[in-house]
Design a protein around this nucleic acid. Structure first.
Ligand SMILES: [Zn+2]
Ligand SMILES: [Zn+2]
Ligand SMILES: [Zn+2]
Ligand SMILES: [Zn+2]
Lengths: 167, 167
DNA sequence: TTATTTATGTAGTGTTATAACCTATATGAA
DNA sequence: TTCATATAGGTTATAACACTACATAAATAA
């Protein structure tokens, strides 16, 4: 039942790691960002970020424990969570609350004021987009309500084009 | 530290239960909705829905376990989750993924195509709004991307007017 | 250097959600 | 009514996700 697979399960079925050149570029850029802010992209944090860039989709915290543990000494969950906290703080990673999962910020929308994640209920694919229109209307609503936005990230669930027919 | 209050804690400090007449009306309306759809609003489901309508804000699943357990026989978590699944299915309740919490759909926006929840990082207040503009732009993006929306609910975190100064 | 801060290691626990299996109740057809 | 089927709930156990508390190590500042 493909639609009920846990992150854990899906990981083992995941697409092959995307182009490692792209990952390297993303890491290099992240290092620059951290240096400019005086933040320390330590080896652990870097490995977590690399892992997230190295897969096509979100990973759960325990997926990262397993993934990084398989290529060296196993880290405790709290170690992963601490690295994730840092990366989220630096806006290099997003937490997908609706999936209890974490995803590397795509370089293409970095700097965008508001990003939205389209999350497919079917295959779990996550599509990060920067829509100025959505950003604007959301900000307008927030202003009307007197809200000062902190998270400008929207998670929208639905079914991607490929998964429309199923169920 | 007001900003780290658990749902549990906030529950005990919560505003007095809102007007029980309002709750009763909401339940009556929910019953009608279920009847018309051939869905069964059983006593357990009804009690969960009443509890959610009876408080001002979201409740965690285990808050519901405690709350309903205190007024009768304690139910197992799975029982609460099953009731919540039903109520969410009927769109009588929303799950706030970013808070791991559940909130009764407000009657005022019932029937709206897209609702947005403004969740305050400070006080935890949740404001359910129906913004046609946001709904429209979100749907446009979804259409452009070939997504068929299922959840038309957006969770936007920020800081409400009262909590702007803090931190 | 020493003091201070920041990062990580380690153990245990807390919190949220579901699996598996069984029983009871409701509903519909014969 | 009786039987078949579907739906709801009971019970136990466990999976999955996240953090507290405290010790140690490494980096940075004084
Ligand atoms: Zn499958
Ligand atoms: Zn899909
Ligand atoms: Zn208090
Ligand atoms: Zn607030």
């Amino acid at each position: 039942m493909a639609h009920a697979l846990s992150l854990h399960h899906r990981l083992s079925h995941a697409d092959a790691p995307t182009d490692s050149d792209r990952t390297e570029r993303a890491i290099a850029q992240s290092e620059a960002v951290c240096r400019s802010k005086g933040a320390r992209l330590t080896p652990i944090r870097r490995r977590v970020l690399e892992a997230l860039h190295g897969v096509d989709g979100p990973l759960g915290a325990y997926d990262l424990v397993d993934l990084l543990g398989s290529q060296g000494r196993r880290m405790a969950p709290i170690t992963i969570y601490r690295a994730l906290d840092f990366l989220i703080e630096q806006e290099l990673v997003h937490r997908l609350a609706s999936r209890n999962a974490y995803i590397a910020s795509s370089g293409t929308v970095a700097g965008a004021r508001t990003t939205a994640f389209l999350i497919c209920d079917g295959c779990g694919d996550v599509n990060e987009i920067a829509s100025p229109d959505v950003a604007e209307t959301v900000l307008k609503v927030l202003r009307d309500q007197g809200y000062q936005p902190r998270t400008k990230v929207l998670e929208i669930t639905g079914r991607c084009a490929r998964c429309q027919d199923v169920h």
